[in-house]
């Protein structure tokens, strides 16, 4: 590679293009994106009171309304078992149970859940006795780095509830069937909202299969 040639070219371009919108147009084909003419400073936000029932305990928090349920758990209640993997509902690490249903706690505001009941990974075990899913995850090595694990387990708990209620999935052959059988293919489809980059997937499916047969 000819270093000198490159430096010369860059310098010339710099001179030619500096300081004008046309310059940017030449490089990217677009005018510079105008920075929107919003008010210069952000307004102060008054905290909003919210009551949350978390793992059976009542908590009253005064939160910036922008606080997600996930950040309320992690930053305000030190319940750091729920993980922030993407903060956009694209990985599932933040999965918790809201009134028994699994949701991404990163994509909902804490203030929207006033008076509602939330179960996190910290609330699944019965004292020192692990939830059957937790025990099965250990036995089948359903975790490696552990960062998606809370979400996988909460998601699996919600999923088993959905399955028992007769919920179909995209891979259910006959949607009209009242109680589709929970095959491995069904487990995989239903758990696909929980990414595991270590890819403990086969072990997670084995753990869920085992726990599915255990009454909770």
């Amino acid at each position: 590679m000819d270093n000198d040639d490159r430096r010369v070219r860059v310098t010339r371009r710099t001179v030619l293009e500096s300081g004008t919108a046309t310059a940017a147009l030449m490089l990217t084909g677009f005018p510079e994106v105008a920075l929107s003419a919003e008010p210069l400073s952000d307004k102060a936000v008054a905290p909003v009171a919210v009551d949350l029932q978390i793992n059976g305990q009542s908590h009253t928090l005064h939160l910036d309304p922008r606080t997600t349920l996930l950040d309320a758990l992690r930053e305000h209640l030190a319940l750091t078992g729920s993980k922030k993997g993407c903060d956009h509902g694209q990985c599932g690490a933040c999965t918790v149970l809201l009134d028994g249903r699994r949701i991404n706690s990163c994509l909902t505001l804490a203030v929207m859940h006033d008076g509602q009941s939330i179960t996190t990974i910290e609330g699944l075990a019965d004292g020192a006795t692990l939830h059957p899913l937790q025990a099965a995850f250990i036995a089948h090595d359903g975790c490696q780095c552990g960062y998606c694990t809370s979400g996988q387990i909460c998601s699996a708990a919600g999923m088993l509830g959905e399955s028992r209620a007769g919920m179909p999935s995209y891979v259910t052959a006959d949607l009209a069937e009242a109680r589709p059988e929970l095959t491995d293919a069904e487990i995989r489809e239903r758990m696909s909202g929980n990414i595991c980059r270590c890819a403990a997937y086969p072990n997670i499916v084995a753990a869920i299969r085992e726990a599915a047969g255990t009454p909770t």
């Binding site: 949701i103 991404n104 919600g158 179909p168 999935s169 949607l175 009209a176 909202g193 929980n194």
Partner: peptide, 21 residues
């Protein structure tokens, strides 16, 4: 039973957690 195309379309979207919300 009657609108299988809709049920299947919904189930094909996003993830179970997102669909619950």
């Amino acid at each position: 039973r009657r609108y299988g195309v809709l049920s299947r379309a919904l189930l094909s979207g996003a993830s179970a957690q997102l669909r619950n919300k």
